[in-house]
Design a protein around this nucleic acid. Structure first.
Length: 278
DNA sequence: AGTCAAACCTGGGCGC
DNA sequence: TGCGCCCAGGTTTGAC
């Protein structure tokens, strides 16, 4: 599910309703997603805490709580974080329920159970695995074309592989990587270091452009993704290559092709996205 | 340094 | 209906 636009949409949809709310109880139906501390300490520490602020870093959500604690959540493939009324039925994939004042609940559901929840003191956040290795935020002012050019220089790995590397740029996943490369007209297997200046400039523009477009449409819902209000996104209808194997390219009409890059299903237009030059 | 497969889990879709 | 296989939005791990 969740790449940067989806995580950002969850953040925005939870920020209003959650800010100022207090946790009155925590029910853990499945503890496997709780990485630290142990589930009982996790429960005990959270009860009575107030949500102060929500931030996003890459695909991580960071909930600042009273008492100096931070709840860090990574949704991985199928994690969902959404608000519900306390009377609504709890489905079998809901693993953790945070009861809030006013008969509301924040629920964590996760069909494949890959997601991660960690509760740490704010001084400890910087040491968390995955979070500390994150690269640049694509919307930060540090994400310049010169910085990108320097990151690609002499790299032999496929450009798609590099886009998916969270230690380079944070937040891009498999769907947006394909859409970004289509937008920029670059073959996903082209070695990063072989991109021309024009291609680097096009890529630099396409990264924030496609992510922003995803956010404007409230994310991509192909399977499980929903925002903090339980609503699906709309960007799946605007994808131009992802999931469109065999369909005509919207620019040139050639059939969209599916290959594997970095072990991931990869969609591109063989005519618009070439390996050589341009 | 890099690439790859496998692992963590569950479920949907397909062909037979 | 059932079975087996492949696929899935992410990341880590260990082998080469």
């Amino acid at each position: 599910m969740p790449e940067l636009p989806e995580v950002e949409t969850v953040k925005r949809s939870l920020a209003g309703p959650l800010t100022g709310a207090s946790i009155t109880g925590v029910t853990v139906y499945f503890a496997g997603n709780i990485k630290e501390p142990d589930p009982e300490t996790f429960r005990r520490l959270l009860i009575g805490k107030e949500f102060l602020d929500i931030a996003r870093r890459g695909k991580f959500l960071l909930f600042s709580l009273s008492g100096g604690y931070v709840l860090v959540v990574h949704l991985r493939m199928t994690g969902q974080l959404f608000l519900a009324g306390s009377g609504e039925p709890v489905d079998k994939h809901t693993h953790i329920v945070f009861s809030l004042s006013g008969d509301r609940e924040l629920r964590y559901a996760d069909q494949r159970k890959f997601g991660i929840l960690e509760l740490v003191h704010k001084e400890e956040v910087h040491r968390l695995k995955g979070l500390k290795e994150l690269g640049l935020e694509p919307f930060s002012t540090d994400f310049t074309v010169d910085w990108l050019a320097a990151m690609l220089r002499d790299k032999k790995r496929p450009i798609k592989n590099l886009l998916l590397d969270q230690t380079v740029v944070a937040g891009i996943g498999n769907i947006y990587a394909d859409e970004i490369l289509f937008e920029a007209g670059i073959h996903p297997e082209k070695p990063a270091g072989a991109l021309t200046e024009r291609e680097i400039a096009a890529l630099w523009q396409a990264v924030p452009r496609m992510l922003e477009l995803g956010i404007q449409h409230r994310g991509t819902s192909i399977r499980n993704y929903v925002d903090g209000a339980g609503q699906r996104g709309g960007f799946q209808n605007l994808l131009r290559v992802y999931g469109r194997e065999g369909e005509p390219c919207c620019r040139c009409g050639a059939a969209i092709t599916r290959i594997k890059v970095a072990g991931r299903g990869t969609y591109f237009c063989p005519r618009c996205q070439h390996r050589e030059q341009q």
